[in-house]
């Protein structure tokens, strides 16, 4: 905390803070792990932590896009489950079927995202409800169609989940590759800029001549596709598709938590992918350390809950202090207490 306070005057970005917190968590983790007689930095442990980041990472990248656009996606766990099943059943253990399976799974995921996006952008249904509803729709389909795990991934496909390059799992590298693509999309393309504009303030964006719907639709489509990729990765790790794998991981709320932990403003318009990756990593390290400590599963939830609130409180306070004056009026958050609101009040 002292370090934080000292660094504050030097325009530390919110992503900077995220990574500072990550370093703190890493140091703490290394100490605790050492106290339990383990080596935190051993190949096996690093690989375990990175594996922990990859699936939540995919989903959180997508969730970042949706949140930046001012929406939410609660249907991601079901999309991931569906993608794992579609992929697994289409592959049916045959290497030759992999391309078709990947296209099918991601195509269906994209369609789901398209529907989400259209409902949010054109029917004006809040993302929370639109995707909650979509989640229910998919849950019903999954429950009706699949009575347990189905399909099977051929060995070549399973390697994605099993292969390590040094201590780094291939799945993590793919996830980072997707992160780079999304970062390019956000920084280098017009629609990426519009995404920020629409999420920041839709009315201002519209008055500046930005069509507000396409960025929202795109964000939802990409979010679903990334959830579909998470599903395919789960398929690679599990070797079978599973109708409950998405819900098992609780990826809906945890991805939102990771995004906000990564410094993205829940109301939209402010934040970035790098921060999200930091947030995901914080979760992964935390989970790893708690498992090494053999902390009771219920208490693990307590710790997660507290860390989420405390960590976000650290950024939020800082945001409130450092927010440039020009955001004072326009940044009114939609479903959050605008941290912008006349900053000095608290």
């Amino acid at each position: 905390m002292n370090a934080l306070a000292r660094l504050r005057p030097t325009q530390l970005t919110s992503t900077g803070i995220v990574y500072l917190v990550l370093v703190l968590v890493l140091v703490l983790g290394a100490v605790i792990t050492a106290a339990s007689g383990r080596n935190f930095f051993s190949g096996g442990n690093i690989s375990a932590i990175l594996t922990g980041t990859s699936i939540l990472g995919f989903i959180a990248i997508g969730q970042t896009l949706v949140i930046l656009a001012g929406s939410l996606d609660l249907s991601v766990p079901y999309v991931a489950s569906l993608a794992s099943l579609l992929g697994g059943v289409t592959m049916a253990g045959q290497t030759g079927n992999i391309p078709l399976a990947v296209v099918t799974a991601l195509g269906v995921a994209a369609l789901i995202g398209l529907v989400n996006g259209l409902v949010v952008a054109y029917l004006h249904v809040h993302g929370f409800i639109a995707t909650l509803g979509m989640g229910l729709i998919l849950a019903g389909y999954l429950g009706t169609t699949y009575k347990g795990s189905a399909g099977s991934a051929p060995r070549d496909f399973r390697l994605i989940g099993a292969l390590n390059i040094g201590p780094v799992p291939l799945s993590t590298i793919i996830m980072l590759g997707c992160a780079v693509l999304v970062i390019l999309l956000l920084r280098r393309t017009r629609i990426g800029h519009h995404l920020y504009a629409v999420g920041g303030n839709k009315d201002v964006a519209r008055l500046s001549g930005v069509r507000t719907q396409p960025p929202v639709v795109l964000a939802h489509v990409l979010c679903s596709v990334l959830a579909g990729m998470a599903g395919l990765l789960l398929l690679a790790r599990l070797s079978v598709g599973s109708p409950t794998i998405g819900t098992q991981g609780g990826y809906d709320l945890m991805s939102i938590a990771a995004v906000v932990l990564g410094g993205t403003v829940l109301a939209g318009g402010k934040g970035n992918i790098l921060g999200t990756l930091g947030g995901v990593a914080i979760f992964a390290v935390m989970d790893n350390v708690m498992s090494v400590m053999q902390l009771n599963a219920f208490l693990q939830d307590v710790v997660r809950g507290l860390v989420i609130v405390i960590a976000v409180a650290v950024y939020a306070r800082r945001n409130a202090d450092l927010r440039p004056a020009r955001f004072e009026r326009s940044g009114a958050a939609r479903h959050t207490p605008a941290p912008t609101t006349a900053g000095g009040a608290a």
């Binding site: 391309p99 990947v102 496909f157 994605i160 793919i174 590759g177 693509l181 629609i191 719907q213």
Partner: peptide, 22 residues
Amino acid sequence: GRSVAALSALAMLAACSTDESL
């Protein structure tokens, strides 16, 4: 037009997965 842009971005992502996975 926007949808086409969206789809091409999507294709990029799909490529990212298929290339590496295969």
